[in-house]
Simulated assay, not measured.
Amino acid sequence: MQKPPLHPWFDVGDLAPVVELRSADGRTKPITRMAGRTAVVHVAVGPADPAPVAAALAARAGEFADAGADLYLVRHGGPEAVAGSPSDGLTALADPAGALAHNLHLEKPTTVVFDRASRLAAVLPLDDSPGDGPAGHAEACLALVRDRLPPERFREGPPVQAPVMVIPNVLSPEWCRWLIQVHDREGNAPSGFLQQVKGESVLLSDDEVKVRRDHVVPEGSPLEAEIRHIFSRRVIPEIARATHSPIQRHELFKIVRYEAEEGGHFRPHRDNTASAGRTRRFAVTLNLNTGDYDGGHLVFPEYGEVGYRPAAGEAVVFSCSLLHEARPVTRGTRYVLLAFLH
C-alpha cells in the first residue's frame, strides 16, 4: 500500500476557505455564515449553463431541508451574474474573484458539501454522479446528506458530558490505514507513563496502570511534517475557534495500539501532573480504526459513564487537566494517533 497523497489545496475535513460571496443585491455571504446547518453548494465552473442542475437541486429542496441542509448556487462574476437565477429553495451567490473554485481546485461543475461547522464534508463533481444527469446528481447529493450528515434534533437540555470536542474527517480512511501500517511495519515498543517522583518526572512501567504499544513518529521526518500540516488545517483552527487558545508546538506524535490479547488499557490519569508535562494544554485522541474491536472507550470519570469511541479519522480533543482513561479492549485491536499540544 502506498502512502496517500496530502492534498495541497482545501480537502475534506478542512475548514471552508474564507471567500467573499455576494447575493444579487450585493450583500456579502461568506461560507462561515452558513454554519449551523449543512450547506450544499453547487459551484458553476466553466461555460456550461448551471440552470439544469440548480433546478434539479431546487426540486428536492424540501427533502434537503428535512435532512437539515440548505442549497446554494455559486457563479463566477459580480452580483449581476446571479440576478434572476432560480430562487425557490436555492440561494444564488456571486463569486467575483472565482475564489471558491480556485481554493477548492475545481476544474468542472461540482457540488461541495459543508457540515454544520463549515468543514468541507464532500466534493461531488457533476459528471461523476450515477444516474441520469442533473436529476441523478441531485439524488446523489441528497443521499450523501442523509447518510453522512443527519440533522441534529432539538432536545430539552444537553446530555451530561465532558467538555470535549469531537472533530470529524481529520484523517481520510487511506491515511488511517497507512498509519496503522506504519505502526506495525516500522516498529513499536511497550509504552510507559510519566509520574512525579521526589520532585522529578520519571517514566514508569506498570501493567496494572497501562498496557499499550507505541510507535513514535521521528522528529523531523516527512511523516511528522505531514501530520503537523494536517493538524494545522483541521485541528488547530477548531481549538482556536472554541477556546481562543494559541497552539505553538506539539510533542512527538505517537501511533499506538491497544491489543485485546494483551489486555490493552490505560487507567484513569491526567496528562499534565508531572513537571515534564505541565505546559501541555490539549490532548488529541484520533481513532484510526473502528468496528473491528470491542471496548476501548475513552471515558472521563469526573463527568459520568459516557464512553467516547469516535469513527476512524475522527479526533477527540480535550484539556490535559481532565481525568480520563482508555477502557480495556476486549476483542480485536484499537489503533490511535495521539498528540499533546502546547
Rank of each mutant, 00 (worst) to 15 (best):
D70V: 04
D14Y: 15
P190C: 10
E224L: 02
F154N: 06
I230H: 11
V19Y: 10
R116P: 09
E261H: 10
A326V: 13
R278P: 05
L149P: 00
E107A: 13
F266I: 01
A101N: 05
P163G: 04
A311L: 11
A225I: 01
E174K: 02
C141Q: 15
L126C: 00
V45R: 09
R228V: 00
A274E: 05
T38V: 14
W175F: 10
L90M: 08
T111I: 11
R153D: 07
A39M: 06
E305V: 03
F253P: 09
S172H: 03
D294N: 12
V19E: 09
P301Q: 04
Y258W: 06
H183T: 06
L179Q: 03
L322P: 00
L323H: 05
F253C: 01
L322F: 07
P125Y: 15
V336L: 09
G304N: 09
H102M: 06
E305S: 09
E226T: 10
P86N: 03
Y335E: 06
F253N: 04
N272H: 08
V329A: 12
V112L: 09
L322I: 04
S118G: 05
R155K: 03
V82E: 00
A274V: 04
P5L: 12
Y308V: 03
P310L: 13
A101M: 01
V329G: 06
R334K: 12
K29D: 00
E107S: 12
R116E: 14
P5F: 15
D292V: 12
R327Y: 09
N287T: 08
L126H: 15
D184G: 03
P5Y: 14
L337F: 11
G68E: 03
S191F: 09
P310E: 15
P86R: 01
F300E: 03
Q2G: 05
E251Y: 11
R281W: 01
G68N: 00
R309D: 02
G157K: 02
D95P: 01
V202P: 13
Q161H: 13
G68H: 07
A61W: 03
A240F: 11
P158K: 03
P159V: 13
V211F: 13
D214R: 07
A65R: 10
P190T: 11
L171V: 06
P52Q: 07
P328I: 01
L90T: 05
G192M: 05
A44T: 02
V209W: 09
A51H: 10
V216N: 00
P163E: 05
V211R: 13
A326W: 14
A94S: 14
G263E: 08
I227N: 05
G84Y: 14
V316Y: 02
L252W: 04
L252V: 04
V170S: 04
H215F: 13
P125H: 06
P218C: 06
F300N: 07
M165H: 03
N169Q: 12
R148C: 12
H137G: 08
S87T: 11
A44M: 01
P158V: 05
G89D: 10
R148V: 10
R241H: 11
D206G: 13
C141A: 14
H265G: 00
T111A: 14
G304K: 04
P47D: 14
G136E: 08
L323I: 10
V82T: 07
G313H: 01
I227Y: 11
P4W: 15
R233K: 15
